[in-house]
């Protein structure tokens, strides 16, 4: 279970998260919606451990383990995965090498054996097929020259390979065409189960018809201002976020 209490954080001296309280019980999928600039990506970066995002108060634990004091790779080893809103290009780093290095790092952390190049290729090819990704994407530099949608698919591929316990999807739907949205959602749904939870950040109700959330939260100006069931997304779609309300 992901438990966030009173979390405040600043970037470049500017307070962005102003006291977040949020619980995602194991096995559940929660959605976060909210206007541009409200702090959704900031929350995801703070949970993943990005430098420059300074936590000034509160706690965040995953299965009882404090996340905030840990290095990004340690969080990944605990099973936390962030699908980036803006995936990073790594020229000169081959996608296959990147994916295998990541997978083996996470497998080591789980006490599993490492995969050699052949074993890895077999697994990667199977996942890529499920995601309708052309195999030559393995040969290219990580995200280099990928279209916006291809980058997002590459994020979903990484998630599928690393099989996290907690996936934070930051606008993974943005930039995906209709078919890809369906395929990516299937990728998330395939992981769903009693040991998997997810925090799905999105602007669009459409995604939530594919990945049906257990709860929907509204983040505005650094705070969760509303929470509800999946129907809240429909309501927001119809009426917008409106004027900021008191929490």
């Amino acid at each position: 279970m992901l438990r966030i209490e009173g979390l405040t954080a600043e970037v470049d001296g500017k307070e962005i998260l102003k006291g977040i309280d949020l619980e995602v019980p194991t096995g559940e999928v929660h959605a976060i919606m909210g206007p541009n600039g409200s702090g959704k990506s900031t929350l995801s970066y703070v949970l993943a451990g990005r430098d420059g995002y300074e936590v000034t108060g509160g706690t965040a634990t995953f299965d009882g383990v404090d996340l905030l004091g840990k290095a990004p790779e340690e969080r990944a080893a605990l099973g936390v995965f962030l699908a980036f809103q803006y995936p990073v290009e790594l020229p000169g780093v081959g996608n296959a090498n990147f994916l295998r290095t990541a997978l083996n790092a996470v497998r080591r952390g789980r006490g599993e054996s490492e995969l050699d190049a052949m074993q890895f290729l077999k697994v990667a090819r199977a996942r890529m097929k499920e995601l309708s990704m052309p195999e030559d994407m393995l040969k290219r530099g990580v995200n280099v020259g990928f279209s916006g949608g291809e980058k997002k698919r590459n994020e979903v591929l990484q998630m599928a390979l690393l099989a996290p316990k907690l996936a934070i999807l930051d606008e993974t739907d943005s930039g995906l065409d209709i078919d890809a949205l369906k395929i990516a959602s299937d990728g998330v749904n395939a992981l769903r189960g009693p040991d998997f939870s997810a925090l799905v950040i999105t602007h669009y109700q459409r995604l939530l018809t594919y990945i049906v959330p257990d709860r929907v939260h509204v983040l505005m100006a650094g705070r969760i201002v509303r929470s509800g069931g999946k129907e809240l997304a429909l309501e927001l779609e119809a009426s917008g976020y409106g004027a900021p309300q008191a929490a």
Binding site: A48, G49, R50, D51, G52, A71, P72, E73, R75, A76, A77, F81, L82, F84, P87, V88, L90, P91, G92, V93, N97, F98, T101, A102, A105, V106, G109, G141, Q158, L162
Partner: peptide, 25 residues
Amino acid sequence: ADQLFYLRARGIDEATARSMLVRAF
């Protein structure tokens, strides 16, 4: 820094991540 974070967020330790980026360079 963004590239380093991206690699580390995928579970790759800092030293390995740095070495991957130097080789890529």
